[in-house]
Simulated scan of single mutants.
Amino acid sequence: MPDTRFSILRELFARTQRDLTRLLTRRVGPDHAPDIVQEAFLRVMHRDMTEEIADPPAYLRRTAVNLAMDFSRRRKLESRLFVADAESCDAPSQEPSADETLEADRRARILTSAIETLPPKCREVFVLRMHHDVPQDEIARRLGISRNMVDRHLRIAIKRCRSAVQ
């Protein structure tokens, strides 16, 4: 009797495994579908009264679909309950590396030096615009120069700073 049951289950597995896997792949994804198919076969195999099942392929399919629904519900619940903490996961750090920090410091020193070498009026215009976010019309009014002269000082300062940093 056990040999007959085993051969029936083996034949059922051979006939339905591919279709069940395809069905469950759409529901739970390709990573989890084979495991759920296997779990469904194990449940059917461990059922005591296999002979009483009128339609074994339909019973197996219903078992697999129920397991997939349970899996989906559990995954949804886990996603609500367990929020991944940025510090606890293995995600790359948002902090700059030591090399990046050193490079940024080096470039900042070069930029500061370039700003210090600008002509006084040019430096004043650049600092007011870039560091204090003063509009160009306001800079022109404060320094008693034309708006075109402010633009010219800014172009010179940006060009020199850019070439120094590169």
Rank of each mutant, 00 (worst) to 15 (best):
R10Q: 12
L118W: 05
T101Y: 12
A64L: 00
A86K: 10
E39G: 05
M69T: 11
L9W: 01
I139W: 00
E39N: 11
E11R: 15
P30T: 14
S72K: 08
R129Y: 12
C89D: 15
R142E: 06
L60N: 03
S93G: 04
P135Y: 07
T21H: 11
R5T: 13
E116M: 06
D70H: 08
D99E: 15
D105Q: 11
R26K: 13
P119W: 04
F41K: 03
T63H: 04
P92D: 11
Q166T: 13
V83R: 09
E87W: 05
R152L: 12
M1F: 10
E124T: 12
R73N: 05
R142I: 07
R160P: 02
T4Y: 09
P135N: 05
L128H: 03
D70C: 06
D48L: 09
P120C: 04
L67C: 03
R74G: 08
A98R: 12
R15C: 07
R109G: 08
P56L: 00
I145C: 04
V134D: 02
P135H: 13
A164M: 03
A157E: 00
L24M: 04
L143T: 02
F13M: 09
E103S: 11
D31M: 08
E11T: 12
F71E: 00
S146A: 05
E138S: 11
I115S: 07
V127C: 09
R141E: 14
R75Y: 03
E116N: 12
E39P: 08
T25I: 03
R26G: 14
T63V: 11
F13C: 08
P2D: 14
R162A: 11
E11D: 15
L77H: 07
P34F: 00
R10T: 11
A68E: 01
T112R: 14
G29A: 02
R61M: 10
R147D: 10
I156D: 07
A114F: 02
Y59K: 03
F71N: 01
R62Q: 06
N148S: 15
V150W: 04
T117M: 07
E51K: 14
P96F: 04
H153F: 07
R22H: 09
Q38Y: 03
T101P: 06
E124C: 06
K76G: 09
E103A: 15
L42G: 15
V150P: 07
H131C: 13
H32G: 00
L24T: 02
L60F: 00
E51I: 13
S163R: 15
T112K: 09
M1I: 07
A14F: 09
L128W: 04
A14M: 13
T4S: 14
L20P: 07
Q17A: 13
A114H: 01
R43H: 13
A114Q: 05
P96K: 05
V65T: 10
I115H: 01
R47E: 12
I36Q: 01
A140P: 06
R73W: 05
R27H: 13
R22N: 08
A86L: 10
P120M: 07
A64H: 01
M45T: 14
I53R: 06
Q38N: 10
D31E: 15
P34G: 03
T21N: 12
E124H: 11
V165F: 08
T25H: 06
E78Y: 04
P135G: 09
A33Q: 02
R107K: 15
V125E: 00
P30V: 10
P56E: 01
V165A: 10
R15E: 14
F71K: 02
A108D: 06
R80L: 10
F71I: 02
L81M: 08
N148A: 14
R152Q: 13
